[in-house]
Write a protein that binds this DNA or RNA. Structure first.
Length: 371
DNA sequence: CCGATGATGGCATTTGGAGC
DNA sequence: GCTCCAAATGCCATCATCGG
């Protein structure tokens, strides 16, 4: 599993997963991610995080959680009036809170030992899910293909719910769960087919930051308005999951030209203002070669850098239309153009008028609407 | 002062071919 | 289907100038 420090041993043995230093990784991400999607995520994360709150706060809350009778088996979790799709085979779940955020189900679950299991139903058909589990405390064991993987506090795992696996807890544990329909991912061109069910996340600054963000979001979810929750669930979480999916080694990544271009587009949009963005840099970040990236674009009648400039110019056009106070030079800089002159020329080529003409055009339309 | 345009050198990107 | 390499080419950055 690359840098993550997972050691897969033989059949039937327990595999330990190295503990992570999340705060260190977050620091690097913030340093590296100026004006990028990562730094924007960090800002939102800080806003959400607010004052320090104990991790078990969600479980202690009296509202919107389900209590389970240890005597009953296969109890379906419920909260907010809808049945949760996770079920407890051995009734070990003490509390579970779950919420909908757009297409995504988020759950905070506390599960007790000594040996207990949450059974994810084996899914069939096209509407299967991808599940992100982050261990807050305790120990979670995942069994698949005769092996058992052990995860401790801070570990995060992606699980393809359409494939078979078992999940156990030896002691009192708390986990945060994100369950995303694959359809929500495929609609964005994010390939999410895995060969095996369980994929520990490869450690890295971006993965660490996303893990911290998801934990903060799950902890504070009962304080977040439904509107914001839905927007984060619809627009943000699938994109963050895409970063995690493409950081795993075992993912059956989309190798088709369309998938490569889609991933490149997401990368460009994250770094729309980055003047250093190049074909070589994009290829590096997408784990492919310059040749393959260029070829993928060519198959769709595009070239990488032309696509970069098309997206930048479209972004610039939106800025001109929505924030009339911005100077042309500022907009050029914000969209990765090294000079206003270059920006102006490219803008005219793309939109048929100079930025200033477009600005005046927008003002004229606004004045007509007011009149 | 700010933005648009013309000219130009340099270099990043693309292309095509070969080989694995 | 991929990487590597060399050659060709397209176009970006910069400077100077002009116009509103």
């Amino acid at each position: 599993m690359g840098r993550s420090g997972h050691n897969v041993k033989g059949v039937g043995c327990v595999v330990n997963v190295a503990k992570r230093n999340g705060s260190h990784a977050v620091g690097h991400a913030a340093q590296r991610g100026a004006m990028t999607g990562v730094s924007q995520t960090l800002q939102i994360w800080k806003m959400l995080k607010g004052p320090e709150v104990p991790d078990d706060r969600a479980q202690r809350s009296e509202s919107q959680h389900a209590q389970f009778d240890p005597g009953k088996s296969s109890a379906h979790l419920s909260g907010q009036g809808e049945p949760c799709r996770f079920k407890s085979a051995y009734s070990s779940i003490t509390t579970a809170k779950w919420y909908r955020a757009g297409p995504i189900v988020i759950a905070n679950i506390q599960v007790g030992g000594p040996v207990s299991q949450i059974e994810f139903p084996h899914e069939h058909g096209s509407d299967t899910s991808l599940t992100l589990i982050i261990v807050r405390s305790g120990e979670m064991l995942i069994g698949q293909d005769g092996q058992t993987l052990s995860f401790g506090p801070g570990d995060a795992i992606l699980i393809d719910s359409s494939l078979r696996f078992t999940q156990f807890f030896r002691k009192l544990s708390q986990i945060a769960v994100l369950r995303v329909p694959k359809r929500a991912l495929s609609e964005r061109g994010i390939a999410s087919r895995f060969v095996t069910a369980c994929h520990p996340l490869r450690e890295g600054p971006d993965a660490a930051l996303i893990r911290e963000f998801v934990l903060a979001f799950a902890s504070h979810i009962d304080n977040v308005s439904e509107v914001l929750r839905t927007r984060i669930g619809r627009q943000m979480l699938p994109e963050l999951l895409a970063v995690l999916i493409y950081s795993t080694d075992a993912a059956n990544r989309g190798r088709s030209a369309k998938a490569v271009v889609m991933r490149a587009t997401q990368l460009i949009e994250r770094r729309i203002g980055d003047q250093t963005l190049s074909v070589e840099g994009m290829a590096d970040e997408l784990n492919t070669s310059i040749s393959s990236l260029t070829r993928a674009f060519r198959q769709l009648g595009l070239s990488p850098m032309r696509h970069v400039y098309a997206l930048r110019l479209e972004h610039a056009r939106r800025l001109l239309a929505t924030i009339p106070g911005l100077a042309i030079a500022e907009i050029a800089c914000l969209n990765g153009f090294a000079s206003p002159a270059h920006f102006s020329r490219m803008f005219k080529k793309q939109h048929g008028m100079t930025p200033r003409e477009y600005l005046l055009h927008c003002r004229l339309i606004a004045e007509k609407e007011l009149a």
